[in-house]
């Protein structure tokens, strides 16, 4: 069963440019979907429409079988959101944010207390639960918002860049909680620029660019779509892009060249690098590579 279904979704804010251009997206129950895209690609617009906070210009989104435009009140009871660049109030503590937010969501006090404790502990905020947020680090403040949303235990969680600004350890803590939520059957849509995050936590990813979904599937499927299994990074004297292009797709990054290629040609290129005395490193194509190639492809076509 699909928990989120968007069909031919279009959105314009000013009547001239499209923030979303016919987005079709489906998310299954208990799945973590990472929505990837550059700044202004349309990720937040999609999230806000799916949360019934924004009206689509055309098309529809159904969440848990309900149309978000027609049945917004019923949808809102069953979803939770971490807004992009959101912050807790500096004058309140992590405890008061989570506890009172749960009360506002309709939970009885006893249950709100239990859940506030559980989620503050799991997001490593329990020791600072009574410190006002103004005296916490930026990462801790960010985790307060994540705790507020996760503690609702809503059926669908929309997390708009929930780990932005977090240190690696804090990120892992949040990732763990997101995976735990999915393991308990909740559906999670998370937007991010961090490809490692997407690969780590997402069952499926969707790459959005200029309001269009340019690729979607499991991270492996999306990587496979670019058609290159490996990449070789080369640095040295006398490297010619024209020579490398016979091996695969060449991209220049600063003073080095990156060549995307298949299994068979990788070995040949490495042999050449050794013969010429270049520094070479071989690695598997990452989701970030796929993202750069797919989004770049769209740009080239547009150009």
């Amino acid at each position: 069963m699909y928990v989120i279904e968007s069909e031919d979704l279009w959105k314009t804010y000013d009547g001239r440019r499209w923030a979303l251009s016919g987005v079709d997206l489906r998310v299954r129950e208990g799945e973590v979907l990472a929505l990837l895209g550059r700044n202004g690609a349309g990720k937040t617009t999609f999230i806000r429409i799916a949360c019934s906070l924004l009206k689509p210009t055309r098309g529809s989104v159904r969440v848990l079988g309900m149309d978000v435009t027609q049945e917004s009140s019923r949808v809102r009871e069953r979803i939770a959101l971490v807004p992009q660049e959101g912050r807790p109030s500096n004058l309140n503590t992590p405890w008061s944010h989570v506890y009172y937010y749960l009360i506002a969501r309709g939970l009885p006090r006893s249950e709100a207390r239990v859940r506030a404790r559980r989620y503050l502990q799991s997001l490593e905020l329990w020791d600072v639960r009574d410190v006002i947020c103004g005296n916490l680090s930026g990462g801790m403040r960010q985790r307060v918002l994540v705790a507020m949303a996760l503690a609702t235990e809503a059926d669908v969680l929309f997390l708009d860049e929930p780990t932005i600004g977090l240190d690696p350890l804090s990120k892992q803590t949040v990732w763990e909680q997101i995976r735990d939520s999915a393991a308990e059957g909740r559906t999670v849509v998370v937007t991010t620029h961090n490809m490692e995050e997407a690969e780590t936590i997402a069952d499926r990813v969707a790459i959005i660019d200029e309001g269009r979904i340019v690729a979607s599937g499991t991270p492996e499927e999306v990587k496979a779509r670019v058609g290159y299994e490996y990449r070789v990074d080369l640095r040295g004297d006398g490297i010619e892009a024209s020579e490398l292009s016979s091996y695969g797709l060449v991209r220049r990054i600063g003073d080095r060249y990156r060549v995307y290629l298949s299994d068979s040609t990788a070995r040949e290129l490495l042999d050449l690098a050794i013969a010429r005395g270049w520094t070479a490193s071989l690695s598997r194509t990452t989701l970030e590579d796929a993202f750069v190639l797919l989004v770049g492809e769209v740009e080239e076509h547009a150009g």
Binding site: L53, E85, R87, S89, A104
Partner: peptide
């Protein structure tokens, strides 16, 4: 401030009664 800086109004829109009790 809650809407532009903290963005908490989006979270409170998803509470019982929505933005009115907030």
């Amino acid at each position: 401030f809650n809407r532009i800086v903290l963005r908490l109004d989006s979270m409170f829109a998803l509470t019982k009664g929505g933005l009115i009790p907030y």
